[in-house]
Design a binder for these strands. Structure first.
Lengths: 222, 222
DNA sequence: TTACAATGACTGACTAGTCAGTCATAATTG
DNA sequence: CAATTATGACTGACTAGTCAGTCATTGTAA
């Protein structure tokens, strides 16, 4: 947090670059922090916030419990910071891929496919579930998630829908008022994978295609 | 679970119906049990399983902590039994309303509206969220939920879709393979209400209409 | 370059507190 | 009165967070 780690860089390796593995103090500290973050993520996903023991996190990270408190104020702020850190990478993605040249359907399909590959069927799916689970108890997380992911994602989706409407690819103009409808099957896929996959595996790809057919019209009407 | 609670019913009021307020032993016991169930539900929804204190449940139910253990084996089985108890009423509903005479769209719309009124916008929405949250840690609950609600609900929905397809109300035959698509907006509505309602209220009714228009075709194409 | 001093990351035993579950006692009922 | 039901003080296991002490790394002096 308020670590002036810059100080350790003002001199650029006076001596001994130490072969290959970085062994400088700041590096090790960063490594440990990363290990804690990783371990904590695993534990929180597996047990939820309240049931996670920091002793277990420390053990899994290969670190003493006290070390956790060198990096985080307490369990709660660790949790919050963790989620934030994990979400940030996606904020980039949401804005990054500039609309390709093809049809809107192709763009939406590409987005959805990316979502399915990168989220559903990944540990990140459980992260989404974790946010759903703990959101009401951590309003700041729900706020952050809404601001950084949901509202942006929906805005982007709305723009795509509007484009599709002007191009005539989508006939239902009201859809622009409910971009959630575009996302809904993805959310269901994520939840399904977490809860029911072993009861009945879900072919999210096929479901997606059907969904797109409903919205854009079947590719071959008969 | 293995509680033969039926025993309390074998005799039907031997004597003294006791004016108005029931005060017979079994009745009081049932009342207390109901109070505990209610209180526990509130606490579990508000805090999740691990963070819920039985002291709080007892206090809220107006009962001593020991009393809880007269009705439930332990916290965990109380939680499981609770969820089961809360879900059962819906199993009936899912099978109960026999297909009305109107169009399939009307039937689906009626079902969805019932869902929105009785689940989304109710404390029950949080129950769904609770199941999503704790499901992975309580496989028996996920199993039960899948068996009693999800699989039945999807089967019913699939039947309706098939009917609509044969009647020509729905053009997309693949939809029968993915009844989840029919439900998806409802799930999103439930989650939205729990997490984001204060950021951006969701008009679930309007969203439902748009969704139905996508599936059944807009009522007025232009 | 080498010896010594300062730093602060790291440790883990410890404290203070929490909470599920128990049980001796009290209250109620028939 | 005996039997049943309810109570809540109590126990013991468990855990978030602390802190005095250690020691590898870094800085400085000779």
């Amino acid at each position: 947090m308020s670590k002036p780690s810059k100080l350790s860089e003002r001199r650029v390796e006076p001596v001994k670059p130490a072969a290959a593995g970085a062994s400088r103090r700041a590096d090790r500290s960063a490594e440990r922090r990363a290990a804690i973050v990783q371990a904590a993520m695993d534990e929180f996903i597996a047990r939820g916030f309240a049931a996670t023991r920091l002793d277990d996190v420390a053990k899994r990270a290969g670190v003493a419990k006290g070390t956790i408190y060198l990096h985080f104020k307490d369990k709660e702020s660790m949790f919050e910071e963790l989620i934030r850190t994990a979400i940030v990478p996606f904020v980039g993605r949401l804005a990054a891929p500039p609309p390709a040249g093809g049809s809107v359907r192709d763009m939406v399909e590409a987005l959805a496919r990316m979502f399915l590959q990168e989220i559903a069927g990944t540990r990140r799916a459980d992260l989404v579930r974790l946010i759903i689970a703990e959101g009401p108890r951590f309003p700041s997380i729900a706020d952050f998630y809404y601001r950084e992911v949901v509202s942006r994602g929906l805005a982007a989706m709305r723009a795509l829908i509007q484009l599709a409407i002007t191009r005539g690819e989508i006939r239902e103009p009201k859809l622009a008022q409910h971009p959630q409808l575009m996302i809904a099957p993805m959310m269901v896929a994520v939840i399904w994978k977490s809860l029911f996959e072993r009861h009945a595996p879900l072919d999210a790809e096929a479901m997606l295609q059907t969904h797109l057919d409903l919205i854009f019209g079947a590719r071959r009407p008969t």
